[in-house]
């Protein structure tokens, strides 16, 4: 939480209040990003999705989005723009635009990443920046998750029947802005009733405590195991709270973002869409 005046650290360690004009600009930028990130979440019978993002600074470079498709599938994306703060946030908005327009015209997650890389490559190359992205299509009719990866952390699958937690089968792909005209391969996985998929950015596993120890994947898995029976939103709150406890109030080093897909019953047709029908 941010209270009082926005301040900027100086090299000498002191901090100076920003001028009111700049404060207002930053507040507006934060509102724009927060509104775009926290759009209406699609609801569907037989399951739920939830997403949350906590920037390390006033605004951040992490990104997640849901895009319901006309064929009844739902496209999920999570990503991390290199860097932090305002520069990363500007590129995050660019990434969001590329995702939404690619989703209109592409068949699957691999094709979406290919189109996004194609659209963003020149700009990212010119700016010396990169974006990691993980894109997945959830097919509620056939209970299939199809996914492709552009250099992002592999999400975790939490089995509802056994409680086992494993990373999804690896699928390789260079980060967006890395290789021009790259084709991204896809993998598929069948999900059962009670299963969950947890997508996240590296700000979670790389959160550090006062001993400079990282939160690491092992701790994340433990928290997910302890809270797997909660709703998608409550599960994410538990993850956030355990990171806060672990870091003992140290300033957050990187943006923290997560998306949870939870299958709760046998009927999971998507019933509410948050975007125009193509």
């Amino acid at each position: 939480m941010y209270h009082g005046k926005f301040t900027a650290p100086h090299p000498d360690g002191s901090s100076h209040a920003l001028d009111p004009f700049l404060q207002r600009e930053i507040k507006l930028a934060k509102n724009i990003q927060s509104t775009l990130l926290n759009g209406e979440v699609p609801t569907f019978n037989g399951g739920e999705v939830s997403g949350s993002s906590l920037p390390a600074r006033l605004i951040g470079g992490d990104y997640y989005d849901f895009y319901p498709l006309v064929n009844g599938k739902m496209r999920i994306v999570i990503g991390d723009v290199m860097g932090k703060g305002i520069p990363a946030a500007m590129l995050m908005i660019l990434t969001r635009g590329a995702f939404r327009s690619a989703s209109e015209s592409t068949k699957g997650p691999g094709d979406t990443l290919r189109a996004m890389n194609q659209a963003l490559f020149k700009d990212l190359r010119a700016l010396g920046s990169f974006v990691t992205l993980f894109c997945a299509d959830w097919d509620p009719k056939h209970y299939m998750l199809t996914y492709a990866n552009a250099g992002h952390n592999m999400p975790l699958h939490i089995s509802g029947s056994t409680g086992n937690i494993q990373t999804l089968s690896k699928v390789k792909g260079a980060l967006v802005g890395g290789i021009p005209n790259l084709v991204y391969t896809e993998e598929q996985m069948h999900l059962d009733k009670g299963d969950m998929v947890f997508f996240y950015t590296d700000g979670i596993v790389e959160a550090q405590n006062t001993e400079q120890e990282q939160f690491k994947l092992e701790r994340l898995i433990q928290i997910l195991q302890e809270n797997k029976d909660k709703s998608a939103e409550e599960l994410q709150e538990s993850v956030l709270s355990s990171i806060h406890t672990f870091t003992e109030g140290l300033p957050q080093k990187d943006d923290i973002t997560m998306v949870t897909l939870k299958i709760t019953s046998d009927n999971s047709d998507i019933t509410s869409l948050n975007s125009p029908v193509i």
Binding site: D80, M82, G83, K84, G128, S129, F130, G151, L175, G178
Partner: peptide
């Protein structure tokens, strides 16, 4: 011992 995504970007650039 550790390189994050920003470090990776710096290296590539």
């Amino acid at each position: 011992p550790f390189v994050d995504s920003s470090g990776m970007g710096l290296l590539i650039e």
